[in-house]
Each structure stands twice: as C-alpha cells, then as structure tokens.
Design a protein around this nucleic acid. Structure first.
Length: 470
RNA sequence: CGGGAAGUGGCGCAGCUUGGUUAGCGCGCAGCGUUCGGGACGCUGAGGUCGCGGGUUCGAAUCCCGCCUUCCCGACCA
C-alpha cells in the first residue's frame, strides 16, 4: 500500500514543505497585518510546554519573573547609541493615542533593555541589592521585511532575562551560566536538538552588548538557526541609565549586566530539525500529547479498553489523549496524528484485543509492534524514552554528516551550500567573514576545538562554524 | 527595501491571451446510505461582492492604473 503524499516532500522543496507542515498540523496562520502570526492551539500548547520547562530552569538559576510595559518612550531607546542604531530600522512607533498626536512618540518594545534598566537604576542602591535577576515573558515587535511563520515575524513571543551584578566576572559567569545551564540543557534534553554553543563575532553581536553567546542548531536542509542568545552587556546600559550602587567601601560603581532570550522561533526550529515527509516529529519530553490511544473500531469492548488505557497512562504520569472518533476513517486519523508529531500511538481494535494485545506505533522511526495490554503502559514509557534519545541522536548524526572541516574561506563557502563549515578562526578572520557575508554565509559562532565556549574572542585556536542561516 | 511569481468558495487550481448573460473542477464541509485495521464509496446539498479601490466599456474574473497581501531570491534581525 503506497501512502499518498500529504505534504510537499521535504527534499523537493524545503520552504514549501515547512509551510505545508505549519498549515496541515494546524500550527499557525498568517495574521491580517503583514508579518503577524496567529498561533493555533496545538502550537501554543507546544510553546506552553517550552515555557514550563524553561521557566523552571530560569527560576532555578535564580531569576524571578516580572512584567514591564509594552510601550517605551522613544527617548529611552536613544540613550544607548549602538542599541538605537541596531533597532531603529525595525521599530514600530506609535505617534497617536487617545485621538491626538503624542508629544513624544512611543515605541512598541523590540526588547526591554531600556525600560527595565531605567527601573534597575531606581531599585539598585547598594551592593546588597545585587545581583538583581529578572525575567519577563512577553511579546515584542520588530518590523520584519521578510516574514516567515515562527522564524521571523513582526511580533513574537519570548522570554527576556535582565540582570545586574557587582562585577564584570560575575556578569560574565551568569551570561554563560544561562547558556550552559538553562538554554543548552533545555534544547538538548527537552527539544532533543543538539546545539553548538559559542561566541558571536563582533559582526553578529547584539546591539549594545560587549559579548554575545549563542546556541545554534542545524535544520533539515543544512541551514543554521540561532535558537537562543545570552549577552554580556558590560556597563553600556549601566552608564546610559546611570545604574549605580555603593560597594562595600562606600564608593559608587556602575553595575555589570546581562540579558538573554529565547523565542517562539524555537517552534520553527523544532519543525525544521525533526520534521519529515509525514509532518512534525515531537520529542516526548516536549510533546503536549505524548501518546494517543486510537480506538480503531468500537466493537467487542475495544472502546472500554481504549478509555481504560488512556486513564492508566495518565495515572502513570503520561500526557495521553484518546481518539475515539470511529466515524472518521482510521487512515485519516493516523495521518493526522503523524502530522502533529505525537510520539507514540497505541492502536486499540477488536482484532488485536482478542489476542490480549494492542499495537504500539512510534512516530520517530515508524515501527509498529504488538504489545500485551497489561504491558502497554510500561512499553509506552520505554518507547517514549527511546524516541527521545533517538531523535537527539538522529539530529546529531545529520549535523555531523553535514559538517565539513575546511581550510579557507572559499572551501567554507562550498561547505555552507548544504551544511556547516568548520575552520580555524585565525584562517578566516574578519576579512574572510566579510567575504562570506557577501555570499549570504555567516559565522554562526566561535568556540574551542572541544566545542566549549571561550572566555574571550581572542583565544588562540578558536574554531569558526559558518553556515547559511534563517 | 531591491529583483521575480502569484492572489478566483476552507485548501489546491482552471477560466483571462481573443471582455458577452447561470464562474467551473478536485479536495474539504453538511445530510442520508453503504463501508470501516493506513487519507473509503454513492447520492443529495451548502458555500464565491473572482484581493481592495478606481478607470475603459452597452457589458469586466478577463483590458488599464493605483494599493494591499502571499511565496521565492538577495540586503537586516530572536
């Protein structure tokens, strides 16, 4: 039996495939204003799972949640020179309110450094007030000229952390801690996405930061996606907003800061990294629905058995759903759950039930196995664990296979046509970086030979990973 | 923002070159029946100011102008 193609094949037209998945898995729609996005319930559930997992880790790193306003006085943005310069082109500016022209235009936040820091200046007096670790879950607006659902939209949802510390070393350590203890483990353990971590080059650095750290993942077409960033801001904003404290000796000092964020872009990354020709493939640790019990036919006690299985799975702590829509064709329902990437399907029908069995189908590798009903819950648990690992390994293997070690800029360009190129940063340099950029290839990050994050950008023997990026 | 392509029921498309009266097709949707272990089938039916605005014309989905939106390729960003 040949399956009809549900989606444009991934290898035939990747962008088209991506759009097909977003539409058919009911993830998102375009909003009425160019560049905006309607996040549909299933994708929002995925985002909520990301939020839950991240929020826990962020709090474990000591930050507390707060909320700052959407509207920011335009003058605030102008206080940090590089920051304005970086964001000016993509600002949405409100000029009218309450039926009249505003005296000072108000910008819709593209990020909240400026508002948050103006309050940090007020709240921080003493070294005893430090470190101040704040996180906010919010929407931000950056007017996009070339929008793409989840990956680049004019409005997106994210989490932005902002911290102030008493010393440069402490701020630097915290920026790194967020990268290595929050973002990277979340992406690896929950999203099953192997990420490269490292520093951004000066060219790729966040506007206003002295150092930007990044997590980079490879998508199914070999392009890179920046999954999250953590910035060391130095004292740039502290000076611009006059954030000072008296230290133990009573002298006034400017604070040292960080900011860090991940966004709904990760949903796009998840689709592009794990998806296949049948749709999304969700890692079990993330999936809003980990297992769906599909009632094949409501005969011979199958309906009762399916409902009971779902209840048992839930009792065992598994996120389970029941699909008892027997008036809809079985094949159609299978296709639907595959599109949505639900990791495991338990098919319950009278035929196998007569033998005391149900069928366990794994989304990650497509395997189907009969399992004894009384063993089903345990077997689902095993399958979920296994799928989590195999998705991660599969993504890692694809990345390795599509990564080439090269010696110079020309070879790097060649390598970046279908994956990552890796070469000595010393052999590329900023001139080489500019040459690549002219061809749409960027340095995604700099890291040590062993993949760890360097302390500074001028460590010897740094490796540059270059690629085309979303 | 530059360069290309395209907007016709929910989705995918035909019709446009050579204006002409009831705008078609497939999928989906609703009802009924037969089916039912990988997108079932039959019958009946609903659903469209042809992206928006202006113009030409006796008459515009079709020709002209402007705008909006989407997709692809480039420059900028999570």
């Amino acid at each position: 039996m040949v399956r009809a193609a549900v989606l444009t094949p991934r290898g035939q037209d990747f962008p088209r495939w991506y759009q097909d998945v977003v539409a058919k898995a009911e993830l998102a729609d375009n909003g009425p204003v160019r560049g905006t996005m309607v996040i549909r319930p299933y994708a929002y559930a995925i985002w909520e799972r990301m939020q839950a997992e991240l929020d826990r880790r962020i709090k474990a790193a000591g930050a507390q949640n707060a909320y700052f306003p959407l509207f920011i006085p335009e003058s605030f943005l102008r206080r940090e020179a590089e920051h304005v310069e970086g964001f000016s082109p993509e600002l949405a500016v409100v000029t009218h309110g309450g039926g009249k022209e505003l005296e000072e235009p108000v910008v819709v936040r593209p990020t909240s450094e400026t508002v948050i820091n103006s309050y940090f200046a007020k709240w921080i007096q003493s070294h005893r007030d430090l470190p101040l670790l704040v996180n906010q879950w919010a929407n931000v607006v950056r007017w996009e000229l070339r929008p793409r659902l989840f990956l680049r939209t004019s409005e997106f949802l994210w989490q932005e952390g902002h911290t102030a510390h008493a010393s440069r070393a402490e701020a630097r350590d915290y920026a790194r801690r967020i990268l290595n203890e929050v973002y990277e483990p979340f992406m690896v353990e929950v999203l099953a996405l192997p990420v490269l971590t490292g520093r951004k080059t000066a060219r790729e650095r966040f506007a206003g930061a002295v150092n930007t750290l990044t997590c980079e993942a490879m998508m199914g077409d070999g392009k890179a996606l920046q999954m999250g960033t953590s910035h060391e801001l130095g004292q740039n904003f502290a000076r611009a907003f006059d954030i000072t404290f008296s230290d133990e000796t009573g002298s006034q000092k400017h604070v040292w800061q960080t900011s860090w964020g991940v966004s709904t872009r990760m949903v796009g990354g998840l689709i592009m990294a794990h998806g296949d020709d049948a749709g999304l493939r969700l890692p079990p640790a993330l999936a809003p629905i980990q297992v769906v019990v599909v009632l094949v036919r409501a005969e011979d006690g199958a309906a009762e058995a399916a409902a009971a299985l779902r209840a048992e799975l839930e009792a065992a702590g598994t996120r389970a759903a029941l699909d008892d829509r027997v008036d809809m064709g079985f094949g159609r329902r299978s296709v639907e759950w595959e599109l949505k990437g639900v990791p495991v399907r338990l098919e319950v029908g009278p035929r196998e039930l007569a033998a005391g069995q149900v069928t366990l189908v794994r989304r990650d590798d497509g395997t189907k196995d009969p399992v004894v009903v009384t063993e089903a819950v345990r077997r689902v648990g095993v399958a979920l664990d296994d799928a989590q690992g195999s998705l991660l390994e599969g993504a890692r293997a694809r990345r390795e296979a599509a990564t080439t070690d090269v010696g110079d800029a020309d070879q790097a360009l060649e390598a970046a046509t279908g994956g990552f190129g890796r070469l000595a940063w010393a052999a590329l340099g900023e001139e080489g970086e500019d040459r690549l950029a002219a061809k749409g290839v960027t340095v995604r990050c700099l890291h040590r030979r062993d993949g760890t994050v360097p302390e500074t950008g001028d460590e010897p023997e740094l490796v540059a990973v270059v690629a085309r990026a979303y």
